[in-house]
Design a binder for these strands. Structure first.
Length: 816
RNA sequence: GCCGGGGUGGCGGAACUGGUAGACGCGCCGGAUUCAAAAUCCGGUUGGGGUGACUCAGUGCCGGUUCGAUUCCGGCCCUCGGUACCA
C-alpha cells in the first residue's frame, strides 16, 4: 500500500471505478426493499456553493448508509432550471437565459461528480426541457378541466419607469432595484390553483407525518391558519352591504368603524365626489405587496363619509378606507374593534375614533383596562345589550345564532392560506398553455399541440416580457373556431416545476407524465433540503401530490415520508446567496485537499439541522485526520496486518478496553446514522477511536487482530462520509469487494460488558468525588461506600445527612 | 408586525430521557524532531483565587420548579430563516 495519502489520484480512480461498475444505477426490479433518498435539486446559478455541498453530502451519506443496510437505494439529481437569475444574467451579460442555464448545468454537474455523490445520472432532468414542462402544461389543463384552476385579478409590484412587474426581491425599500423609482401596486388578471380546496387535507394529513420535524409541521399549520368565525353583512343605505369575516364575534358590540381596501366599491364610490379621498386612494397604490412591508408600514386611513349599519343595533358605523386592508385577501373589508384589537386601537387613537370596551376580565383576575392598549384576551361581556354577562365563548354562539336567525351572517371556517397564483409576467419559465379567442373565450391548447415551447429568439431589456412583443409566439389560430386568437404570454411560477420533479425522477417517461415506476419509488423515503423551504415549496409539493393522486398518477397521499431540514450555511451571519455576494466557492478547497476532506469538514462542523457559520479554518484539521487514518492503516499493513484470528478468551485488560471502546463506538455511530442524523458526532467518535488506537502499543497477535477489526469498522463507519479514501483503505485491508457494497458493522455485545464502573459522588448537587464500584453492588452498599469517601466526609462533616439519592450506574447525591 | 429556529471557552461544537458542563476539532502556548523551516509527534489550554492538594463562579438576561437545570416553566434581550413574485 502507498505510504502517503494522495487524495486527488485516489478520488479520480475511485470515481472512475464507480462509473464503470454502474453501482449507482438502480432499477425497479430489485428484490431488496426500495429506498428513495432525495436532496432538493439545485437552481443552476453558476457554481456550487457551500449550501449545495452540505445538502448533497447529507443526502449521499444517508444514501450510502442505507445501501450498507441492504436497500435498493435511488438517489437522482436534476436541475430546477427556470427562474429569475437567468433573466438577470441575460440582461447583465447579454447571454441568452437558455445558454447561461445549460452552461451552468454542465459546470455544476462536473462539480457534483468531482464530489463523488452516488447519483443515478441516467435519471437526470432539467425543468427547462420542453419534454419536462410539457407534462406540467398537460396537467394544468387537466386541472382547468376539473375546475381547480381559475383566473382573477391580484396585485403585483409595478415599476412605472421600467414598465415591468417586479418580484418582491427586486423591491428595495419600496423602490425598483434597477432605477430606484417608487414601486406601485397594480391589479392584473392572473391564473390561480385552488389550493384552498385541499386546505383541510393539507392540515389533517400533517399529523401522520411523524418523520417530519415538529417545527416544520407547526409552521405549516400556522400558515394554513384554520379559524372558526362568522361572516356577516353590514348593510349600507343605497349600496351593496359590506361583507366582513371575524373570529371574534363576541366583540361585535364594540365595533366602532369598518375598514375597507382602497379598491373596495365603497371606497371608489366615496372617491368619485371627494378629491381628498381619491388622492388618498391613489396614494395607497404607492406600496409594495409583501406581507412584511404591509404589516410594518405606517397604518393610514381616511373617513369615506359613508355609514354602514350595525347588523344587531342598526346604529350607523363609519366606513374608513385603510391602506392595510387588501382587496384580494378575504372580502376586502374588516370590522374594527379598537378596545379589543391592538392594530384597531392604534388606528382609533390616531384618528380620534371611539373606543368601546365590551369584554372585561372575569372577576378582576387581571387588569382589563383599555386606556393604554387593547384588551385582547377573552372574558365576560358588558355594554353589549342582550349579550351582557355572557362569556366570550357563550357570546360567540349567541351572537352567531342571532345573526343566522335574521339571515345577516353565518358561522364559517376560514383559512389564512390563499389560492396559489401561478402566473408570472416573465420569459424564462414554462408557457401557460391557453389561448384567448374573442368568440370562444379562454381555450385550452389541444393535447397534441403540447408542449407550448418557449421561443428562443428574444431580447431581454428589463421592461415587459419579450413574449408579449414576440413577432409570432402569441399569434395563433383559435383551436376551437380557427379565427385569429392570441396566446397567454405569462409563464408559470417556478414552484410549479419543483412541485412534482421528485415523481418524474422515477421514470422520465417520454410518453406519460408519470408511470408505474412512480408508484414503485414514491413516496420519497428521505428528503433533504434547506429550512428556508419549510413552507412554500414543501406545501406546494404536498398539494401537487394530492392532485396527482386524485388524477390516478400516484398512489400515495404525501410525497416525503421523512424530512431533514438542513440549516443554512451562513457567511458573515447571513444566508449565503448570490444576490448578497457572500458565497464561498468550494472548488478551491476540493482542488487543494480533495472531495473527502471537504465532505468530512462540512459534516463535522455542525449537526445538519443547525445553521453553520462558514470558516475556512478547520478544513486543515479534517485533512490531518484523514492523513492520520491513512497512516494507521499503512503502519498496520506494512507490519504484516493481522494473520491470526482474535482469541476473545485470552484478552488482556488493555485489549478488552480497546475492544470495548470499538464496540461502544459502533453502537453510538449506528444510532447517530440511523436515528439522530448527527454526522458531526459520528466523526468525533471515530476520531476518539483513532486516538485510542494510536495509543494502543501492543504487537501481540490478539492486538493485531483487534487493530484489524477496529480499522475495518472505522473504514466502514466513515465510508458514507469519505467514500473515496475508504474505498482504497478497504482494499488495502485485504478485501476484494468494494466498500460501497459492504454491510454495516455489527456490535459485539459481549465486548461491551464490564464488571467495574465509576460513579460520581455529589454533595448538595455538586461534584465532590468519584468511586469505582462493582456492577453487582447493591444500592445500600453503594450508599455506605459513598458516605465513607474521604472527600465526601470533608463536605458533610458536622452536618446531618438529610437524604441520599442513588441514580443507578450514574451517581450518588448526598443532601445535607 | 406575525410564524418558526438559535444563543454553551478565543472559534466550530459535545453533553441524546433533569444527573460529571466543555467530548471531538480549530486556534493559541510550551516541548521533541530539524542546520533551519514545513510536516509530524508529545503536553497544556473556561474565568477568578491558591506554590499546591484544592476552591469559588460559570451555558444570552431576570425569576421559578427540583436533592440536582445547558436541559422543564414564566417574562425579556439579541440573532437567523420564512412571510405567498429569490430559489
Amino acid at each position: 500500500m502507498q505510504e502517503n495519502y494522495k487524495p486527488l489520484a485516489i478520488e479520480q480512480e475511485v470515481q472512475a471505478a464507480w462509473e464503470v461498475s454502474g453501482v449507482f444505477n438502480v432499477s425497479e426490479s430489485s428484490t431488496q426493499p426500495k429506498y428513495y433518498c432525495l436532496a432538493m435539486f439545485p437552481y443552476p446559478s453558476g457554481k456550487l456553493h457551500m449550501g449545495h455541498v452540505r445538502n448533497y453530502t447529507i443526502g449521499d451519506v444517508i444514501s450510502r448508509y442505507q445501501r450498507m443496510l441492504g436497500k435498493n437505494v435511488m438517489q437522482p439529481m436534476g436541475w430546477d432550471a427556470f427562474g429569475l437569475p437567468a433573466e438577470n444574467a441575460a440582461m447583465q451579460h447579454g447571454v441568452h437565459p437558455a445558454d447561461w442555464t445549460y452552461s451552468n448545468i454542465d459546470y455544476m454537474r462536473d462539480q457534483l461528480k468531482r464530489l463523488g455523490f452516488g447519483y443515478d445520472w441516467n435519471r437526470e432532468l432539467a425543468t427547462c426541457d420542453p419534454q419536462y414542462y410539457k407534462w406540467e402544461q398537460w396537467f394544468f389543463l387537466k386541472l382547468l378541466n376539473k375546475g381547480l384552476v381559475y383566473k382573477k385579478t391580484a396585485p403585483v409590484n409595478w415599476c412605472p419607469h421600467d414598465k415591468t412587474v417586479l418580484a418582491n426581491e427586486q423591491v428595495i425599500d419600496g423602490c425598483c432595484w434597477r432605477c430606484d423609482t417608487p414601486v406601485e401596486r397594480k391589479e392584473i388578471a392572473q391564473w390561480f390553483l385552488k389550493i384552498t380546496a385541499y386546505a383541510d387535507e393539507l392540515l389533517s394529513s400533517l399529523e401522520a407525518l411523524d418523520g417530519w420535524p415538529e417545527q416544520v409541521k407547526t409552521m405549516q399549520v400556522n400558515w394554513i391558519g384554520r379559524s372558526e368565525g362568522v361572516e356577516m353583512n353590514f348593510p349600507v343605505p343605497d349600496s351593496e352591504p359590506v361583507s366582513i369575516y371575524t373570529t371574534r364575534p363576541d366583540t361585535l358590540m364594540g365595533v366602532t368603524y369598518l375598514a375597507v381596501a382602497a379598491e373596495h366599491p365603497l371606497a371608489l364610490k366615496a372617491a368619485a365626489s371627494n378629491a381628498d379621498i381619491s388622492a388618498f386612494i391613489a396614494d395607497c397604490k404607492m406600496m409594495e405587496t409583501s406581507e412584511a412591508a404591509m404589516e410594518t408600514m405606517e397604518k393610514r386611513g381616511i373617513d369615506s363619509g359613508i355609514k354602514a349599519l350595525h347588523p344587531i343595533t342598526g346604529e350607523p358605523v363609519p366606513v374608513w378606507i385603510a391602506n392595510f386592508v387588501l382587496m384580494g385577501y378575504g372580502t376586502g373589508a374588516v370590522m374594527s374593534v379598537p378596545a379589543h384589537d391592538q392594530r384597531d386601537f392604534e388606528f382609533a387613537l390616531k384618528y380620534g375614533i371611539a373606543i368601546k370596551q365590551v369584554v372585561f376580565a372575569k372577576d378582576g383576575e387581571v387588569a382589563d383596562d383599555c386606556s393604554e392598549q387593547a384588551y385582547t384576551v377573552k372574558g365576560v361581556l358588558k355594554n353589549s345589550g342582550a349579550f351582557d354577562g355572557l362569556t366570550s365563548e357563550q357570546a360567540f354562539a349567541a351572537i352567531s345564532e342571532a345573526l343566522e336567525k335574521e339571515h345577516k351572517g353565518q358561522r364559517k371556517t376560514n383559512f389564512r392560506l390563499r389560492d396559489w397564483g401561478v402566473s408570472r409576467q416573465r420569459y424564462w419559465g414554462a408557457p401557460i398553455p391557453v389561448i384567448y379567442c374573442d368568440d370562444c373565450g379562454t381555450v385550452a391548447v389541444p393535447e397534441q399541440d403540447l408542449p407550448v415551447e418557449l421561443p428562443k429568439d428574444v431580447v431581454l431589456d428589463g421592461s415587459q416580457s419579450p413574449l408579449v412583443g414576440h413577432p409570432t409566439f402569441s399569434h395563433v389560430a383559435c383551436p376551437s373556431c380557427g379565427k385569429d386568437a392570441h396566446r397567454e404570454t405569462d409563464t408559470f411560477d417556478t414552484f410549479m416545476e419543483s412541485s412534482w420533479y421528485f415523481a418524474r425522477f422515477a421514470g422520465n417517461n417520454p410518453d406519460a407524465m408519470l408511470d408505474e415506476s412512480a408508484k414503485y419509488w414514491l413516496p420519497v423515503d428521505h428528503y433533504i433540503g434547506g429550512i428556508e423551504h419549510a413552507i412554500l415549496h414543501l406545501l406546494y409539493a404536498r398539494f401537487y401530490t394530492k392532485l396527482l393522486r386524485d388524477e390516478g398518477l400516484l398512489v400515495c397521499d404525501e410525497p416525503f415520508k421523512k424530512l431533514l431540514t438542513q440549516g443554512m450555511v451562513l457567511k458573515d451571519g447571513s444566508k449565503m446567496s448570490k444576490s448578497k455576494g457572500n458565497t464561498v466557492d468550494p472548488q478551491g478547497l476540493i482542488d487543494q485537499y480533495g472531495a473527502d476532506t471537504v465532505r468530512l469538514f462540512i459534516m463535522f462542523a455542525a449537526p445538519p439541522e443547525q445553521s453553520l457559520e462558514w470558516s475556512d479554518s478547520g478544513v486543515e484539521g479534517a485533512f490531518r485526520f484523514l492523513k492520520r487514518l491513512w497512516k494507521q492503516a499503512y503502519q498496520h499493513s506494512e507490519t504484516g496486518g493481522s494473520t491470526v484470528p482474535l482469541d476473545k478468551q485470552a484478552l488482556t485488560e488493555q485489549q478488552q478496553t480497546v475492544r470495548r471502546a470499538l464496540h461502544l463506538t459502533i453502537q453510538k455511530v449506528t444510532d447517530d446514522f440511523g436515528r439522530r442524523y448527527t454526522f458531526n458526532t459520528v466523526i468525533a467518535s471515530n476520531m476518539e477511536l483513532i486516538n485510542t488506537l494510536a495509543k494502543f502499543v501492543d504487537d501481540s497477535d490478539n492486538a493485531r487482530a483487534i487493530r484489524q477489526e477496529a480499522l475495518e469498522a472505522i473504514v466502514l463507519m466513515l465510508s458514507p462520509i469519505v467514500p473515496h479514501i475508504c474505498h482504497q483503505l478497504w482494499l488495502d485491508l485485504g478485501h476484494q469487494q468494494a466498500v460501497v457494497s459492504a454491510s454495516w458493522p455489527e456490535v459485539d455485545t459481549t465486548a461491551l460488558a464490564q464488571d467495574i464502573l465509576e460513579l460520581v459522588l455529589q454533595v448538595n448537587g455538586k461534584l465532590r468525588s468519584k468511586i469505582k464500584v462493582s456492577v453487582t453492588a447493591t444500592k445500600d452498599e453503594i450508599e455506605v461506600m459513598a458516605l465513607n469517601d474521604e472527600q465526601v466526609k470533608r463536605f458533610i462533616e458536622g452536618k446531618p445527612v438529610r437524604k441520599v439519592i442513588v441514580v443507578p450506574n450514574k451517581l450518588v447525591n448526598i443532601v445535607v
